[in-house]
């Protein structure tokens, strides 16, 4: 059965691009674009890998991650964080909160694919 990736991102074009790349590689991709309800969504259907944007409407990616790491079922969930702000302190914050990986936009398709395979165990 194909591994499931949940992408939480609010930019429609980026959602489309990542979905295309991962689907083509054989992953099942679900998307969600609202920060406020994202954590609920993850807990309801825990994916094999979560790709989480930092700047989301309603609630920031950091808050969502903190929430997930505190919950029992999602404490060990592989989470790849994305940000377009590209500041060092964002990376530090993400790692401190327990992100499995952190990527700065823009990225190459090969790059994101390699990390997804790595984190979700191919």
């Amino acid at each position: 059965m194909a591994k499931r990736v949940l992408l939480i991102e609010d930019e429609p074009n980026i959602i489309e691009a990542i979905s295309f790349i991962l689907t083509r590689d054989g992953w099942t991709v679900h998307t969600h674009s609202d920060g406020e309800t994202a954590a609920e969504r993850v807990r309801a259907h825990p994916p094999d890998l979560l790709i989480l944007d930092v700047m989301l409407p309603g609630r920031s990616g950091f808050d969502i991650l903190r929430d997930l790491r505190a919950g029992e079922g999602t404490a060990a969930l592989p989470v790849m964080m994305l940000t377009a702000r590209g500041q060092t302190k964002d990376r530090e914050m993400a790692m401190r909160l327990g992100a499995t990986h952190f990527m700065t936009k823009p990225f190459s398709n090969a790059e994101i694919l390699a990390h997804v395979r790595d984190l979700a165990g191919g």
Binding site: N13, F20, I21, A84, R85, K105
Partner: peptide, 18 residues
């Protein structure tokens, strides 16, 4: 500014690679 610049660039880069 970084965010506003990188966001469109992410789409451009990704789709152009595809």
């Amino acid at each position: 500014i970084s965010h506003e610049l990188r966001t469109p660039m992410t789409s451009i880069r990704s789709f152009s690679e595809i």
